[in-house]
Design a protein around this nucleic acid. Structure first.
Lengths: 144, 144
DNA sequence: ATCTGTGCAAAGTCTTTGCATTGCG
DNA sequence: CGCAATGCAAAGACTTTGCACAGAT
């Protein structure tokens, strides 16, 4: 049923790189990392392997609003948060996957549910501080 | 503070098109619709207006995994579901915005929360049926 | 020996941008 | 009038793909 996957060096390097980088690398970041030790790899191969590994469940893919997809070596379901100012992207710890949601939505939509993704959006502590300072600045001006 | 926005014909057409199309049109779909009655509009202008309208809160933007952004004339927060087979994208009715979540995440992450988006993924009724039939087919074969 | 995977580069999709010009306020 | 917005086309960011060849099974 599932196609046979050959265990190439490139495939192993891609898995290793995503695990090493840990923090949701993009395809570009994975490529950059692998090139260090295996300069001949091509970007196309990285993309092909990432897709293949996601398809067979060895990696997770996270779609990031206004940005490149990111790849995750953590396979357990979890949520993510993106800073709307600097773009920093990280896991949300402490919030477990909401189990009942999929069932509720299945009942409401008659879809055969697979899963759901939540991306939280807000200002990271640094950016929140910076934004406050900016605002203080503006209030000081008489400009509109 | 907020920049002055001129009330151009193009801007009005973009708002009107998103409202008319209603079902989360992409920028391309908005453009195609407007071209019918105003052939001189350029795609760049459509993108610029969509961005500007989202920024000033007159439209909502929905980031779709593996697909173009979609624009929403409904401003109240709601969730979306995408069929993982045919790509159909729609609102999830009957599930209200989960109010407490943002506060919980704020406490866990120390971010200044803005909002969250949930995209559900599953098979729409048609695709679920089609997928079942395919599977039956495969079981009938002796192929691996 | 077979046939998937690779490297390379070209192309595809979606979106933004530089610049001369238009037209709203 | 002045400056934001437009039209156009070029370019940018991200990803896929066609083709000939290499290498895993």
């Amino acid at each position: 049923m599932a196609k046979i996957k050959r265990n190439t060096i490139q495939r192993q390097l891609v898995i290793a790189a995503v695990r090493f980088l840990a923090d949701h690398p993009t395809a570009e970041e994975v490529y950059d990392r692998i090139v260090m030790e295996y300069p001949d790899i091509s970007k196309g191969t990285v993309y092909r392997n990432l897709n293949s590994l996601v398809e067979c469940g060895l990696l997770g893919r996270v779609s990031v609003p206004s940005g490149a997809d990111r790849y995750d070596h953590i396979l357990s379901r979890h949520y993510h948060i993106k800073c709307s100012r600097c773009g920093k992207f990280m896991n949300v710890e402490n919030i477990d996957y909401i189990q009942g949601l999929d069932e509720k939505v299945a009942a409401a939509t008659h879809y055969k549910m697979n899963h759901h993704d939540i991306v939280f959006s807000g200002l990271c502590p640094d950016c929140a501080k910076a934004a406050e300072e900016e605002e203080a600045q503006l209030l000081g001006d008489d400009a509109n």
